[in-house]
Simulated scan of single mutants.
Amino acid sequence: MKALLPLALAATLGALAIPAAHAEGNDSWVVRIGGTVVAPKSNNGTLAGARADVSSSTRPTIDLEYMITPNWGVDVLGASPFLHDVSLAGLGTVARTKELPPTFGINYHFMPNQAWSPFLGLGVNYTNFFGTHATGALYGNSVSIANSWGPAVRAGFDMKISEKWLATVDVRWAYIESDVKLNNTKIGTAKIDPIVFGASVGYRF
């Protein structure tokens, strides 16, 4: 999966470097506000010899997209911090962590002038873990989760409400795999690789 990161970076940076051949008119920007569920895959690796599981989390999100042309757009996804519990088989919840996962991407909108328009995207995700602390059986120990870079993909559709307003439903996948340390000693890698479900309302300007 890490081999996809240079491709995702090149696609995103290449789109940002395109000259100002943006869509005609004044509606080159779209801001979307909604909610997102980060649902880690099942079986999130092995930590200290035990199977790990990372809980899902739902938070409000904001997405800002700049339309280079009517079909091509570059976007950035932001959110309030997601909160996850980390559990180990036989021990229950042993840690909690917060994370911010800003994601940058380039999207192709297939039918931008129609009542509904599907789109596909490719981008880069950076996940910053912070506020990590031990609980339960590990309470009193130091736990840390490394930050993660990885590719991200996106699919969804826009539904036009009016000339300015739209509704968006999308699903993303992000490569998130991070080393976990207990008292500064690596105990394994958390393989989160979540499916991210989103629904939002957007405004063109």
Rank of each mutant, 00 (worst) to 15 (best):
I161K: 07
A52W: 06
P81E: 10
G90F: 08
T135E: 14
V86P: 03
W165S: 06
L83W: 12
T97P: 06
V153C: 02
M159G: 14
F130H: 02
Q114M: 10
N43V: 02
A52Q: 06
V171G: 03
G49I: 11
E163S: 14
G188V: 09
P6S: 12
D179L: 02
T97H: 02
K160D: 05
G14H: 09
M159K: 12
T103H: 06
T61M: 11
F82S: 11
E24Y: 10
S42I: 01
F119E: 00
L47A: 05
A20I: 14
L13F: 12
D193R: 01
V124L: 04
P112G: 13
I68Y: 12
S200F: 07
A190G: 02
T69V: 12
G150L: 00
G150S: 03
D53K: 14
D85G: 02
Y126M: 06
A39H: 09
I192S: 01
H133Q: 13
V54L: 14
H133F: 13
T127H: 07
L120W: 06
S42Y: 05
V143S: 04
S55I: 09
N107A: 05
I176L: 08
A199W: 04
K2N: 14
L47H: 05
G25T: 09
T127Y: 10
K160S: 11
L77I: 09
D170P: 02
L7W: 13
A20R: 15
W29N: 07
R154G: 00
N128C: 01
P70D: 12
V94H: 09
R51V: 00
G49A: 07
T58E: 03
L9Y: 05
R172Y: 09
G90N: 02
F110A: 13
V38A: 06
Y139C: 00
L120E: 04
R51L: 03
F157G: 09
G121K: 01
L5H: 07
A50M: 14
M1D: 13
T61F: 08
E99N: 15
Q114F: 00
G25E: 10
V76I: 15
L166A: 11
I192G: 05
P6W: 13
T132D: 08
S80E: 12
N113D: 15
M111C: 13
T132E: 12
T185Q: 15
G121A: 04
G136T: 10
G45H: 07
D193P: 04
A8S: 15
G188A: 08
F130V: 02
V30Q: 15
I18C: 09
A95F: 10
A52F: 05
A3L: 06
N183Q: 02
G188S: 09
Y203W: 15
D170S: 13
L4N: 03
A137S: 14
A3G: 01
D193C: 00
F197N: 04
